[in-house]
């Protein structure tokens, strides 16, 4: 278990998340990752995963996952980037692009048309897509559909 206030402080400092966004959740650390799960009593059995992998602590600075930003990133008030459709296509394809913006260098929440697309890295005037390969649109295969 991880202290929720430590996690919240990291997200508040980088993305300006308002109070209360993480209330009702608990956090777990496994290796270099933090996972977020609804705060519920857990049966004492062994688990492969607990909720959603929300951030990596492997490198500095810590890195948010795209899936966590798609859930919590909409509350961000700082270090957000809003793309037009051409820029969004590049981002979704996993590409880098020059983009003047007033973000601090580091990880940013990337929006398009009011929705969070995912995680980007802003560095030296470039936005570098951090979308995991399986979420990129250019290489997006049919979903793992059910029968």
């Amino acid at each position: 278990m991880v202290d929720p206030s430590d996690i919240f402080e990291l997200w508040r400092a980088r993305f300006g998340l308002p109070d209360g966004v993480f209330s009702g959740y608990r956090f777990f650390r496994r290796a270099q990752s933090i996972w977020v799960l609804r705060d519920e009593k857990l049966p004492r059995i062994s688990y492969e995963t607990l909720g959603l992998r929300m951030m990596s602590l492997k490198d500095r600075p810590w890195k948010p996952t795209t899936c966590a930003l798609q859930v919590f990133g909409k509350y961000a008030t700082r270090n957000t980037v809003h793309l037009d459709s051409v820029q969004a296509s590049r981002f979704l394809a996993g590409e880098s692009q020059h983009l003047p913006c007033d973000c601090e260098p580091g990880y940013v929440v990337v929006f398009y048309s009011g929705e969070v697309l995912g995680c980007g890295l802003y560095s030296h005037g470039k936005l570098i897509s951090q979308l995991p390969k399986e979420r990129r649109m250019a290489s997006c295969e049919d979903g793992d559909g059910d029968t």
């Binding site: 977020v36 799960l37 519920e40 059995i45 492969e48 995963t49 909720g51 959603l52 979903g143 793992d144």
Partner: peptide, 21 residues
């Protein structure tokens, strides 16, 4: 499990734990 996990994460399921029994 990777497909299961990937779908849970893409769909924003925050009350799901995965076991392998």
């Amino acid at each position: 499990i990777s497909a299961l996990r990937s779908n849970c994460e893409r769909l924003g399921a925050l009350n799901v734990v995965i076991t392998r029994y």
